[in-house]
């Protein structure tokens, strides 16, 4: 709280050293302000961005012994989304299987499997997909879209799929934990 606190008139100054000092202190001040409040802004933005990605989880599908080569089954993910799982080989690992979303990539209708034609068919705009999910005709083929695939794994002879899951909550909002609360 000294007496020389008022702004020194810039006209009194000459010499580049003085100008440099004023310039660098301004720059430093600006840098300090930007660093501090900028970091705070980043934290605020991160706070607003969704904290969790869409939750996905490995779920049991079937016993390998019960799904023979060439057969397919309709698995319903906990979110309600149907998944067509087809067995196409007999090696006994996940490469035998293809798990295709039943949602047409064109406009979201439900495709279905036509066994005699060996294809998935979308009734909305006659979209056609081959067994691997690749579009072969209709609007999806024109756009080069394929049916979405879900990751699969085989553990101890059991087939598991990684699908989006819904959060089941109870009254106090915590995930159900039952005996392990």
């Amino acid at each position: 709280m000294d007496q020389q606190g008022t702004e020194t008139d810039p006209h009194d100054l000459d010499g580049s050293r003085r100008r440099f000092l004023v310039g660098s202190s301004r720059l430093a001040m600006l840098a300090g302000l930007v660093a501090g409040y900028g970091a705070f802004g980043r934290i605020a933005a991160r706070f607003l961005y969704p904290a969790h990605a869409e939750p996905r989880q490995w779920q049991f599908v079937a016993d390998l012994k019960r799904l023979h080569t060439g057969e397919s089954l309709r698995y319903v993910a906990p979110t309600g989304e149907p998944v067509a799982i087809t067995r196409r080989g007999n090696r006994g690992d996940s490469s035998d299987f293809v798990a295709l979303s039943s949602t047409c990539p064109h406009l979201g209708c439900q495709v279905h499997w036509q066994a005699q034609e060996d294809r998935f068919f979308c009734p909305c705009h006659n979209g056609v997909f081959d067994p691997s999910g690749k579009a072969t005709a209709g609007p999806p083929a024109d756009a080069g879209q394929s049916l979405a695939r879900y990751p699969l794994k085989v553990e101890r002879g059991l087939l598991f799929i990684e699908v989006p899951v819904e959060r089941v909550v109870r009254g106090d909002g915590r995930p159900r934990a039952g005996g392990r609360a």
Binding site: I43, A44, R46, F47, Y49, A51, H52
Partner: peptide, 8 residues
């Protein structure tokens, strides 16, 4: 749960 929620 929210990122930095405790801080804000």
């Amino acid at each position: 749960e929210a990122s930095y929620g405790w801080y804000i």
